[in-house]
């Protein structure tokens, strides 16, 4: 019974794929949503109670605090989702989406901190996963919050000439900064790391301001978490 976590994760992934497939047909759509939710429950149980580390299966550290955080999140999320008007649904989804982005960005922040001195010897794949999580999370958080503001009528459109061009420049700047951060951080220079966060946030603003509610690259975020676990 060493690999309970792996089996639970497998069930979780299966739940997501089958659930999404069922959601594509009107008859089974509602059940599909529940199947996907069950998949999520399996995955959470797996990571919390059956963590498969060097010292065998164990409950994860700080499990009380984690359970408390999940409790708070569940209560608040449930109430928000139940109380929202049907007409205000899109901005609610956008807001929740932004919360997921924030979560991804915070994960990367912590992973980066935990790496500490090991940053210098980190494999490129791992660095890519952390920095991509940070960038995608930040863009998705800021972008979703702007989309939320626009959908609920708090923010208006904002355009200026050459916006597309500037957006492309911004993307290149983010990639360049992330690249430079790899070698800079190895020497203990954190400047580029913060610069990546700021640039990603600005890009999130510029990206969503001229358009209507845009859905963030969900698949990339979905892939973001297994990469973190890799």
């Amino acid at each position: 019974m060493k690999h309970v976590q792996e089996v639970l994760f497998l069930l979780g992934s299966l739940g997501f794929v089958v659930g999404l497939k069922m959601m594509g047909k009107p008859d089974s759509a509602r059940k599909g949503n529940l199947v996907a939710a069950a998949g999520m429950l399996f995955a959470v149980l797996g990571i919390m109670f059956f963590k498969h580390g060097e010292e065998g299966i164990h409950v994860v550290n700080n499990v009380g605090l984690i359970a408390a955080a999940i409790g708070v999140g569940t209560l608040v999320g449930w109430l928000m989702a139940k109380r929202v008007q049907m007409t205000a649904m899109p901005e609610m989804v956008s807001l929740f989406n932004g919360m997921g982005g924030l979560c991804a960005a915070l994960i990367s922040l912590l992973e980066w901190k935990f790496k500490g001195d090991a940053i210098a010897t980190m494999p490129a794949g791992e660095y890519l996963a952390i920095i991509a999580g940070l960038i995608i999370g930040t863009v998705s958080f800021v972008g979703s919050i702007v989309a939320w503001g626009k959908l609920s009528g708090k923010l208006g459109d904002f355009r200026f000439p050459g916006q597309q061009f500037i957006n492309i420049i911004m993307l290149l700047a983010i990639a360049g900064t992330a690249w430079m951060n790899f070698s800079a951080a190895a020497n203990g220079n954190m400047l580029y790391f913060y610069l990546v966060i700021i640039l990603a946030a600005v890009y999130g603003l510029l990206f969503v301001f001229p358009i209507g509610g845009a859905d963030m690259p969900v698949v990339i975020s979905l892939l973001n978490s297994p990469i973190c676990l890799w």
């Binding site: 979780g12 997501f16 659930g19 999404l20 959601m23 594509g24 599909g32 949503n33 996907a36 939710a37 998949g39 999520m40 995955a43 959470v44 990571i47 919390m48 963590k51 994860v60 550290n61 700080n62 499990v63 605090l65 984690i66 955080a69 649904m89 989804v93 929740f96 989406n97 997921g100 979560c103 991804a104 915070l106 994960i107 912590l110 992973e111 935990f114 999580g133 999370g137 859905d215 969900v218 698949v219 975020s221 979905l222 973001n224 978490s225 973190c228 676990l229």
Partner: peptide
Amino acid sequence: LMSGANAIHGVVLIGAIYVMG
């Protein structure tokens, strides 16, 4: 479906539990 996919991409929660653990 967009909304459901949004909920599913909340799997980042697993990563959050992992790093906090």
